[in-house]
């Protein structure tokens, strides 16, 4: 009956998306009168016991260094065995690349209904109905999961990671799973060094074609860094190779939902808004008072980015006490 949460790890560290999934899973366990357990695959450097803070009782660990890289088929096999062992009827994944890669396979393996991009806890009063983001953030759908076992992948930043029991420890139990042959061989991993991944960032500073060229991104990067955030861009900016493709947000890029999204020199085309309109607070800096983005914004400055942004940087420095 329990809830099983897939604890995503990257290079031995537990990421924010996994903590959100743990909080979501343990809340859901409380709601349905059961317990929540986690499963982690590969070698981990972080203290797994302390994940008890997020409300889980046990962490099943398959600590095999051969599993440090994802092969969805192998991982699906492990998770199917873990579901059997724990008797879990609800499985939660973070909605990042790894979650999106494994969850659909597990859905087929267990013939379990899958809903991806959940933005809230299920409504379990009459059936099992999950609200998910659709039309790239322009609407929501309430989706009924019709099978006994259910799988949910959670949109990043949709549900906060909450410490529900500060001192609680989860029991870490080794789990010996039978492994299928690996078919996906990892050759190399290339992490964006020192930066916060865009999907995890709580603050995002984003630039558009109004910034004229890649040489002008210094101020975007500086503002993001001062605020502890990540940088993003509109599609024409990445299409012109001013910025890397993974920074492209919008309907055909990454959909994000940070606490603060600062759009600089971006017109606010409907396709751009689709990927960012779930942000909690939106700030728009644009020299054109008619730019459509202002209609979707919480705060705005009508002005030239090249004058406004350097001043904002100075003000943030003052606020943060940086010389």
């Amino acid at each position: 009956m329990s809830v099983l949460i897939y604890i995503d790890q990257s290079e031995g560290h537990i990421k924010k998306a996994a903590l959100e999934a743990l909080s979501y899973g343990s809340q859901l366990a409380k709601q349905t009168g059961t317990t929540a357990e986690g499963i982690v695959i590969g070698t981990v450097k972080d203290d797994l016991g302390s994940l008890g803070q997020y409300g889980i009782t046990q962490v099943h660990q398959v600590a095999n260094p051969q599993l440090d890289h994802l092969d969805a088929q192998v991982f699906t096999g492990i998770l199917a065995q873990a579901v059997q062992l724990t008797g879990a009827t609800i499985i939660i994944f973070p909605g990042n690349a790894d979650g999106k890669t494994i969850a659909p396979r597990l859905s087929v393996r267990l013939k379990a209904a899958l809903v991806s991009g959940a933005v809230g806890l299920p409504d379990t009063t009459n059936g099992f109905i999950v609200k998910k983001s659709v039309f790239s953030g322009k609407a929501f759908a309430r989706v009924s999961l019709k099978t006994d076992i259910k799988i949910i992948t959670l949109n990043p930043n949709a549900f906060p990671a909450v410490v529900s029991a500060t001192d609680a420890k989860a029991a870490v139990v080794p789990f010996n799973a039978t492994l299928d042959a690996t078919k996906v061989k990892s050759l190399s991993v290339n992490k964006v060094k020192g930066d916060i991944p865009l999907s995890e960032a709580e603050i995002v500073v984003s630039g558009g074609r109004g910034l004229k060229g890649p040489e002008n991104w210094g101020m975007v990067e500086e503002l993001a860094k001062l605020l502890g955030g990540a940088t993003a861009c509109s599609r024409p900016v990445s299409d012109s190779d001013w910025r890397p493709h993974h920074e492209h947000v919008g309907q055909t890029g990454l959909a994000i939902a940070p606490n603060l999204y600062i759009a600089i020199g971006i017109s606010g085309a409907i396709q751009h808004l689709a990927g960012v309109n779930r942000s909690k607070t939106i700030v728009v800096i644009n020299k054109d008072p008619e730019a459509p983005f202002f209609k979707a914004a919480d705060y705005g400055i009508v002005g030239d980015a090249f004058e406004v942004v350097p001043q904002l940087i100075e003000e943030v420095k003052k606020l943060k006490g940086v010389a």
């Binding site: 995503d8 990257s10 690349a97 996906v184 190399s188 992490k191 930066d195």
Partner: peptide, 11 residues
């Protein structure tokens, strides 16, 4: 894509 970067794989 992986969390915060990319991974190159062979299949």
């Amino acid at each position: 894509e992986i969390e915060g970067g990319e991974e190159k794989v062979e299949v």
